[in-house]
Amino acid sequence: MSKRAIILVMDSFGIGATPDAASFGDTGADTIGHIAAARAARGNPLKMPNLEALGLGAAARHATGRLPAGFTRTSGFTGGFAAARERSLGKDTPSGHWELAGVPVEFEWGYFPKSVPSFPAELTNAIIAEAGLPGILGNCHASGTTIIADLGEEHVRTGKPIFYTSADSVLQIAAHEESFGLDRLYALCKIAYQHVQPYNIGRVIARPFVGAPGSYTRTGNRKDLAVPPPSKTLLNQVSDKGGKVIAIGKVGDIYAHQGVTQVVKATGHEALWEKTLTALDETGDGDLIFTNFVEFDQSFGHRRNIEGYAAALEEFDAALPAFVSRLREGDLVMISADHGCDPTWPGSDHTREHVPLIFFGPAAKPGDYGVRSSFADGGQTIAQHLGLSSLGAGKALF
């Protein structure tokens, strides 16, 4: 029988604070719980019938002790489900993704302080000199959309790119695609990536935008330059055995293209679903499709947009039946997340939460798999399904 695996990451879709959340200032964070509660309070309960049937609400109850508001199913689940805690030391995108693929991050990333300026002068001076810049703007912790609105006009006028960071181990550089140039922004980020290595920074992200003052918008041409995982992941295991690894959305960048055989870019969840369905037609035995649905995090979690997040969740849920109808015998699908980003939480950073591990498809074994001690249990389950060697961390659910 042909065996294939599909991973769908709902970026930032946490299901309740972990026991160590206090260390991150996130005690009580609950992305799904607070979104559902806000919806219920407005008389418009969150409706995710397909994921609820697979076990989403029950997984969230493992994390918090209660079902999210509006969720009622307590039995008859059609998927295998669990709540997973993160073993990695951070709550960032690479750590979460790498751990899902069997490589927890058990070292400390470097971070830039919240003081202004955030970046050391020797770092910015070196980048400015090598890139031939007239200077930089920002140099602080900021929301990406806010800092573009605040400094975009000055950037276009002066040619100075916008440098900013967050609670993640990251340097982000925003520039106007037309006045600054997309290729020039990518080249600048490559220079910056080399210069941040001594600081143990995980990623440099190009954040291009377009438009005019008052209506600047970020484009889908984001590019992440990431440190590669410290050891082989599930993706390497698949490709080393001759299988395809189709990385859709920002997945290829997150793994520094290690183990990836094809990168597929798309902007917006509708386009990401379309590319995922196309990949179902182009893959076969031993292959892995891996899609990241970034808008949950980028457009709604970080923006603290509760209703936008809720609507996106319902749209994702509504897209599942068409996806399921395209599955073949031997397919195993995992839906999970990489961290939380509670849109009701103070600030604009990620939140330390459990994530769901939900398995379905013809090769899944429905059931309640409890609380897991690592996201890596998800990747290990897929590795076992595909007949791969055991990953460096994790225990298969079934």
Score class of each variant (00 low, 15 high):
Gly242Leu: 09
Gly33Ile: 05
Gly284Gln: 07
Ser299Asp: 15
His97Ala: 08
Lys365Ala: 05
Ala279Asn: 08
Pro161Ser: 06
Pro356Ile: 03
Ala175Met: 02
Ile335His: 01
Met334Leu: 15
Ile15Thr: 05
Ala212Pro: 00
Pro229Lys: 01
Ser169Thr: 07
Ala174Val: 10
Ile254Met: 14
Leu332Ala: 11
Asp150His: 08
Glu295Thr: 13
Pro120Leu: 05
Asn125Gln: 15
Arg328Trp: 01
Arg73Gly: 10
Asp150Phe: 00
Ser23Glu: 14
Thr64Asn: 03
Asn200Ile: 00
Ala192Thr: 10
Phe180Lys: 03
Thr64Ala: 07
Leu277Ala: 10
Ile254Ala: 13
Phe119Cys: 05
Phe107Pro: 03
Pro362Asn: 09
Pro19Ala: 01
Glu108Leu: 14
Asp317Ile: 08
Leu388Arg: 11
Leu272Trp: 03
Ala142His: 05
Gly110Trp: 07
Ser95Tyr: 00
Phe71Gln: 09
Gly249Trp: 00
Ala53Met: 09
Leu272Phe: 05
Leu272Asn: 11
Ser299Asn: 15
Pro366Val: 05
Ala40Trp: 01
Trp273Pro: 12
Ser115Met: 03
Leu137Ala: 07
Thr78Met: 02
Thr93Arg: 12
Asp26Pro: 08
Ser118Pro: 10
Gly57Glu: 10
Asp338Cys: 13
Pro19Gly: 02
Arg218Glu: 08
Asp368Tyr: 03
Glu307Ala: 14
Met1Gly: 14
Leu288Gln: 08
Ile201Gln: 04
Gly14Ser: 06
Gly394Lys: 08
Ser348Thr: 13
Lys244Leu: 13
Phe112Lys: 11
Tyr216Thr: 02
Val245Lys: 03
